[in-house]
Amino acid sequence: MTYHLALSSFVNLEDISKDAQVGKRPVHVMFDVSRRLNATIHQANSDFLLPMHLICENIIGCRQDWHLAHNLSSKLRSDDVIFCADETVGLPIATLCGGRKKGPKVVVFTHNLNRVRGRLALKLFEIRKKVDLFMTANPEQVDFLRDYLSLPKQRVSLFPYQPTDTSFFTPKLALTQRSRPLIVSGGLEQRDYQTLARATESLDVDVKISAASPVKTVNSQTFPEVIPANMSYRYYDWNSLVQLYQDADIVAIALHENNYQAGLSTLFEALACRKPVIITRSPGIIQELIDAKAVLGVNPGDWQGLSQAINSLLKGSKQSEALARKGYQLVHERYNHRIYIKALMEHLTNI
């Protein structure tokens, strides 16, 4: 079989690999998978527009995704396997390339299709007939896809592995001299920094937040209208982000209720740095880690519970160390880039 990897946004994987080799950033798992499978990487980076693309992008993906799918539809054959890294590029490729007599096998990793446009795309484009294997890290997405599309179990795979680079995110001593404890958080997707602000504004702590991207738009529901004096947020580059984790006493991830497990990247990066983590309860991997006593869980929007959890860990060094130790252990046993790459390759070569 000939393997292909489709990404929904353009990234220079060669440059990323070079930077990772000299410790400037974490590895990109797709680069390693492509090398091991001798796979061709396809990225949506063209602005070429057909009328159909303009219509379809209002449902799922963007015009670049549909243009990529259009190009691949004349190239992929029955001896090809294409892995789509998310649904925004995956459903366009499935629509135009999948389900054909001499077409490729299509594998799509999904994050959140249980929403209006996702459900519409699944039905309108007859995706049930066109995707050979769905993969997702979310048990709720597994149930949704099997039920909504009436799929047999073998066509929807729970893939709980995480691409966290444990050679980049590592525990080290804090460099920053501080007069009081530091609470760290990160990311913007489904984040609830209003709850984190209320939980910490009266505590004798500093709160530093890493925004996921220097150009990401901040939602009005993400941050409070007035940022407390002890809270700050800004963009951190990769090395600064690692140092931020290493300086932290606690990593606190406050989330809005969601059905696609937001917050996992920040969670596992912090655990890889051997930091105690408090996170909003959510079904799936997060709840499993809470049950395993690898992280501490709080209810959505419960600022008092979050405040109490922070105080508890700051006062209880044994509890804090136990959480950090267990989380670090699980990252190295189950949730890291090496295991992710191996598991993904097994899925693709066994389809």
Rank of each mutant, 00 (worst) to 15 (best):
L271K: 01
T195Y: 01
S240V: 00
A199P: 11
A254P: 11
P171F: 03
T166P: 00
A212Y: 14
A254Y: 02
F223L: 13
L182T: 08
S167E: 13
L203T: 01
Y233G: 06
T170P: 04
E189G: 07
T222W: 10
A174L: 08
V226M: 10
R180H: 13
N230T: 07
Q154W: 09
V207Y: 10
D249R: 00
Y260M: 05
K153Q: 15
S213P: 03
S150A: 13
S220T: 12
K153A: 14
R180T: 10
L182W: 09
I209H: 06
G187P: 08
D249P: 06
L271W: 03
D165S: 08
L158T: 04
S167H: 10
P276F: 00
D165C: 07
D249G: 02
Q154A: 11
I250R: 01
S185F: 10
A272T: 00
Q177C: 15
L173E: 15
I250G: 03
D192C: 04
R178E: 07
S232F: 01
Y233I: 04
L264P: 00
S220N: 15
Q246T: 02
L175A: 11
T266P: 11
E225I: 10
F223H: 05
S179P: 02
Q162E: 13
Q162G: 02
D237P: 01
P181Q: 12
L203I: 11
G187N: 08
D192M: 03
L203Q: 07
P152H: 03
L267M: 07
S150W: 09
V215N: 13
K172Q: 12
V156R: 04
P276N: 04
K275D: 02
T222F: 05
G187T: 02
P214E: 00
L151A: 06
P276A: 08
I250A: 03
V156L: 04
G187C: 11
P163N: 08
T266A: 12
Q190L: 12
L255D: 06
A262Y: 03
W238S: 12
L241S: 08
Q261A: 13
K275Q: 03
S220A: 13
L173G: 14
P181I: 11
Y233Q: 06
P224H: 01
S185D: 08
F169R: 02
A270L: 05
K275Y: 07
N239H: 04
A174P: 14
Y148F: 15
R234P: 01
C273R: 02
